[in-house]
Computed example of a mutant assay.
Amino acid sequence: MDNISLEIPRHSFTVILGANGSGKSTLLSVASGVLKPFSGHVEILGKPLDYYSRRELARTVSVLPQDTSVRFPFKCGDIVRMGRYPYKRRFHLPSTRDREAVERAMSITDTAPLVDRLITHTSGGEKQRVLIARVLAQETPLIMLDEPTSAMDVKWSLRVLAIMKGLCSKGLKTVLVVMHDINTAVQFCTHLVFLKKGRVFASGTVDEVLKPEILEQVYEAPASIYRPPGFVRPQVIFSPDPDTAG
């Protein structure tokens, strides 16, 4: 990645999009502090990332990486309770707030029935929901998710994104998500960031940047935008290049 300059509006639901290898996951890793930039700096809520202690950062940013593999047979309830680690005092039992945060997160994600099931005995979609419950139980103002619905069916993909949209709309969270499905993304997000070859090609509200000329340069395919009956937001159609379609 090179020469990235980007500001995520507070309480926005921002989705990072772009072709494979454009730097989406790398950008999220740098923004969350997992990777250090070679130059420049990252600020979170107006404070340089380097100024945060590990515990303070964990109380500010919760992250769901792209790789959600869990190799140890923890119970799903224990996985979600791990989200409360930044608030735990050594040698103290979970507080009432800890228990309520875990119960609320598992209720929202409909993972309460999985509380005693081993995470290694869940489907890919169930595992993602449990890990999203952990993120919610962490109760941070900023949430970063990398392909959070990749293993979910349509019903739960839409529901999880609706949950994130609701948290932003109420002014409770700022959410930054990496996705590939542009048509699903635009139904929920407030802002889009398009990356190309490690740089920000375009960023802004959906209305500002969801344009054929931008999409065609980012994805290198002919693009059209239309609004199906009953849809509040537009949809994108990519068509084959006539010179290569055969």
Rank of each mutant, 00 (worst) to 15 (best):
M1Y: 09
I4Q: 11
S5L: 03
E7T: 15
R10Q: 14
R10T: 12
S12E: 07
S12G: 14
F13S: 04
T14Q: 01
I16P: 02
N20E: 03
S22N: 12
T26S: 15
A31C: 15
K36C: 08
K36S: 14
P37D: 07
S39A: 15
G40C: 06
H41L: 12
E43M: 15
E43R: 14
I44A: 14
G46R: 13
G46P: 08
D50Q: 11
R54I: 12
R55W: 00
E56C: 05
A58L: 04
T60P: 08
V61I: 15
S62L: 07
V63A: 02
P65M: 07
T68N: 14
T68M: 03
R71H: 14
F74L: 08
K75H: 15
K75C: 09
G77R: 03
I79C: 13
I79Q: 03
I79Y: 11
V80Q: 11
V80I: 02
V80D: 11
M82I: 10
M82L: 09
G83D: 06
P86N: 01
P86E: 04
R89T: 11
H92N: 13
L93Y: 14
R97P: 00
D98M: 01
D98F: 03
E103P: 01
R104V: 03
A105M: 02
T109Y: 09
D110V: 01
A112T: 12
L114T: 05
R117I: 10
L118N: 15
I119D: 13
H121N: 15
G124R: 07
G125V: 06
E126A: 08
K127P: 04
Q128F: 13
L131D: 09
R134Y: 05
L136F: 14
Q138C: 07
Q138S: 08
E139W: 04
I143W: 10
L145G: 13
P148S: 10
T149G: 10
T149D: 11
M152D: 12
K155D: 07
W156R: 13
L158F: 13
R159K: 10
R159H: 12
L161M: 12
I163R: 02
K165F: 09
L167I: 09
L172K: 08
T174Y: 11
T174C: 07
L176R: 00
L176C: 06
V177W: 03
I182W: 03
N183Y: 12
N183G: 14
V186S: 07
Q187M: 14
H191V: 04
F194Y: 14
L195E: 06
K196G: 10
A202K: 12
S203K: 06
I214A: 04
E220Y: 05
A221H: 02
I225P: 05
P228M: 02
P229N: 01
G230I: 01
G230K: 00
G230A: 00
F231Y: 11
F231N: 04
F231H: 09
V232Q: 03
I237C: 13
I237L: 13
F238W: 00
S239F: 04
D241W: 11
D243T: 04
T244W: 09
T244E: 08
T244L: 13
A245V: 13
G246T: 06
